[in-house]
Design a protein around this nucleic acid. Structure first.
Lengths: 189, 189
DNA sequence: CAAAAGCGTTGTCATAGGACAACTTTCAGG
DNA sequence: CCTGAAAGTTGTCCTATGACAACGCTTTTG
């Protein structure tokens, strides 16, 4: 049940089984279908998710109705509608599962209790957010200046899984271009 | 000497004077001139800075030689070449002071000692990085889809200080456009 | 104070990529 | 195994913006 989550935690910090149990006991299994909405725009996000199997996507819809992907998360990682979860404000993002997924969910109260009482879990969260920040900065650096073709090459090099696993439309919204442009660029390669 | 830093810490968490002293005693004053380099590309960044007065800029140079600004920091905030500081790898970023500035610097060893032993300081760091992440995501959402004129309006609304305080050239590199384009857009408003 | 370097503005020109539309392919769900 | 909706492809057209260059203004420095 919790093997993957336990391994994930152990990869961040050395912990004994008692601590692991204390952490995992707060998580509840959740099964999703394709395109299931875990947090909708306007809701306050109250859960953090660990992905055992499947794939989630966080995205926003701008004033023109275009979708912009914040990020994707695949198995062995954690995700939530972070801004809403952290600030406890109505979310501007949607969090959906792109595939039928097996998740482990922890609610916000339990989450912060663990952060404040279990150093290993604090470390997990701390590392998650450091990584998320570094990744965001990397995307800003990579995508603000680059032309489309170079963005595509960049993803092929740095996050190749996205191209095999995720719909072109969603990838295009991650790269900041339309799906027709992405399609033409793919043809060019 | 440490009034501004103490106020900054107190704004995050209630702390007694003893704790404040413990924190501030690790910081050393640093004076910079205009365009002084605090961390160059290729160096491992070993300091975090609190800005008492002045303004710092973190930027990268892409393969075409164009500058891309990661972010700016004004007074009453903290900054470093984060990715390098966190991962202890040679920096891809430059950290420079745009104006003559009064800073307080803490080295990496002291920084992490404080993070690990003084909960209030851990909270300061934690909040910094949450905010930095949220800000980065906001920029991705705002800048990936938008046209130039809307990016300009966005900064005018959300970070107006940048436009009065910082050179057009640097602002353009923050918005992901050339300075001539920014100049033309300004004329259009 | 003079010279030089850098910055901002404005113009012209070329092009990447968005908007839209028509068509084909895929695949989820019955 | 069908079928309809969604996703992907490709074409045309048009506009936003990059590249480059010329010029004037400001700031720095010797």
């Amino acid at each position: 049940m919790f093997t993957e989550l336990e391994n994930y935690i152990k990869s961040v910090d050395a912990v004994d089984q008692k601590t692991l149990d204390e952490i995992t006991s707060r998580f509840k299994p959740v099964q999703t279908v394709r395109n299931e909405m875990l947090c909708n725009i306007g809701q306050v996000c109250n859960h953090f998710y660990f992905i055992k199997r499947g794939c989630l996507r966080l995205y926003e819809i701008d004033e023109k109705g275009n979708e912009i992907t914040g990020y994707f998360a695949l198995e062995e990682s954690i995700i939530s509608a972070n801004t809403s979860f952290m600030l406890q404000k109505p979310s501007r993002d949607c969090l959906v599962s792109l595939e039928p997924s097996e998740l482990l969910a922890i609610n916000r109260k339990d989450f912060y209790e663990l952060v404040n009482t279990v150093p290993a879990f604090a470390k997990v969260y701390h590392q998650f957010i450091e990584f998320a920040f570094i990744h965001s900065q990397m995307r800003i650096y990579s995508f603000l200046g680059m032309e489309g073709i170079d963005k595509l090459r960049w993803v092929m090099e740095h996050e190749p899984k996205l191209l095999t696993r995720i719909s072109s439309k969603a990838v295009a919204s991650y790269l900041g271009m339309t799906n027709s442009t992405l399609s033409k660029l793919r043809a060019k390669l």
